[in-house]
């Protein structure tokens, strides 16, 4: 057993447990985006950062419990970092209800970066879903750095994709599109209230596959060129 302290609370856990599991064990909530209990932890979105005794911020989903570790889940530094991360996420994915809700929860009231609607936060859940649960290996990351994106080999329809829809199912940003006003601040006004972001009618939508587009929910977000079109690539490179 490993003994550690989370927000001052002493807790004994088995070796190999992650900090995220430890935190959840105590019923403390911290935000996650790229984590899913059915998939390997990846540590990419950094939303679950917690502060350790030595002042480092580490992602709880990938950090193993260690003897005597002091962990703070909601220290001022952690909260400030999470707010900036959410602001960055919103600036590339303003149409996501999940992100708008996170913004509301964390009092992110503005986005100061120029908005670039990527409709993807590169959390990699779909890639891991496809590889680890569906054993298809149809999609993956290509390029690196700011040019990184998720696609199929050569951007062509994949031979190994079985159209299972697992990638759409797991995606944290394409599940519901926020219908908020296109204010210059990008932060959807309604999220600032405790009420649900979007009208309740969208709550049970769940049209991940076949019916997509028919009701119009998922295509009413801000319009941007298709990610794969040459136009889009050129635009990105000229940034």
């Amino acid at each position: 057993m490993t003994r550690l302290y989370i927000n001052g609370i002493e807790v004994d856990l088995e070796e190999g447990t992650t900090l995220l599991e430890a935190v959840e064990h105590l019923g403390i909530e911290i935000p996650t985006l790229c984590f899913h209990p059915g998939l390997s932890a990846y540590g990419a979105c950094r939303l679950c950062v917690v502060e350790l005794g030595d002042g480092r911020l580490v992602s709880a989903c990938t950090y193993p419990v260690q003897e005597g570790l002091q962990v703070r889940t909601h220290s001022p530094r952690v909260l400030r970092a999470r707010r900036m991360l959410i602001e960055l996420l919103l600036s590339i994915c303003p149409g996501s209800k999940r992100l708008q809700d996170l913004a509301a929860e964390h009092q992110v009231e503005r986005v100061r970066f120029s908005v670039r609607d990527e409709r993807c936060i590169l959390c990699g859940l779909c890639v891991r879903m496809c590889a680890e649960q569906m054993m298809a290996h149809a999609i993956g990351f290509v390029n690196r750095g700011y040019r990184r994106r998720i696609t199929t080999p050569f951007d062509l329809t994949s031979d190994v994709c079985r159209r299972c829809g697992g990638c759409l199912y797991i995606c944290p940003v394409c599940e519901l599109r926020c219908q908020g006003p296109e204010a210059p601040s990008v932060v959807c006004g309604s999220c600032m209230t405790p009420a649900p972001t979007c009208p309740p009618v969208y709550e049970d939508l769940a049209c991940y596959m076949g019916a997509a587009g028919e009701c119009g929910t998922c295509v009413r977000g801000p319009r941007t060129p298709d990610r794969r079109s040459p136009d889009f690539t050129r635009r990105r490179e000229s940034v």
Binding site: A131, H137, A138, I139, G140, F141, V142, N143, R144, T152, P153, F154, S158, V160
Partner: peptide, 12 residues
Amino acid sequence: IPLIDLYSIATF
């Protein structure tokens, strides 16, 4: 190995 893994390497 999956083609996508190779494609990732080739573009990385």
